[in-house]
């Protein structure tokens, strides 16, 4: 087949050559950038775990596989495709709690967060929003309002959201943000739902029995 103008082989070779050069260039840059991107990702996660578990001495990554927690990922599965929880330990190797991630749609978009959970006391011990696009000035208080974030430092599960000042002093109450009820409720719902899914696993994980 010929096309008027340049012959078909020329069109194909031109595009092939251009594609080859483009690929080569991208690979070179990727080789340089990838470790940096991975390092940053790991640093962000480590900082978040550090935050929600009140600075554990070190932590283990556990993989949720077929309804059980495992210390090593099964063969042939990419690590980042697996659901992970993180178990933090203090200086004397005593487990202090799990860091669990979760996400659900908030007012604008999916809210991604990580929270610390202590199976011993059944308490949430910290919460950090990893990603959200909530309304600036209202919904984004779920990450920017220090008082709201502090509500999650030691609160009995399952959490109950109450209107500001309407609490009865119950240990499972979380004061919601006035004017950002939906965003606040989503944060509470994410934690409750994730614990409903994983709670039994975390509560019975052998490492915690050691205490």
């Amino acid at each position: 087949m010929t096309i008027r103008g340049a012959p078909a082989w020329r069109l194909v070779t031109t595009l092939a050559a251009a594609g080859g050069m483009a690929g080569l260039l991208i690979v070179v840059v990727f080789e340089w950038a990838e470790p940096r991107i991975e390092a940053h990702r790991a640093a962000v996660l480590a900082a978040a775990i550090d935050n929600v578990l009140a600075s554990p001495a070190h932590y283990d990554t556990l993989y949720v596989v077929d309804g059980a927690l495992r210390e090593t990922p099964p063969e042939g599965v990419l690590e980042r495709d697996l659901e992970r929880v993180f178990l933090g330990y203090d200086e004397s190797d005593v487990p202090v709690g799990f860091a669990v991630t979760g996400g659900e749609p908030g007012y604008q978009d999916i809210i991604q967060l990580i929270f610390g959970y202590d199976p011993g006391s059944g308490e949430v011990v910290g919460m950090e929003v990893l990603e959200s696009k909530e309304t600036p000035g209202l919904g984004d208080k779920i990450e920017k309002d220090a008082e709201f974030v502090a509500e999650f430092d030691g609160v009995q599960t399952p959490l109950v959201g109450v209107k500001q000042g309407a609490g009865q002093g119950d240990p499972s109450e979380v004061d919601m943000i006035t004017g950002a009820t939906i965003s606040s409720r989503t944060v509470i719902a994410i934690i409750n739902n994730r614990l409903e899914e994983l709670g039994p696993l975390l509560d019975t994980y052998p490492a915690t029995v050691k205490r």
């Binding site: 103008g5 595009l15 594609g19 991107i37």
Partner: peptide, 22 residues
Amino acid sequence: PHEVRISAYILIIATFVTIADL
């Protein structure tokens, strides 16, 4: 070649965009 110029331009642009992204 004139016939594939748009494809070629897009290929070149996409390469630089990917580099910028990384």
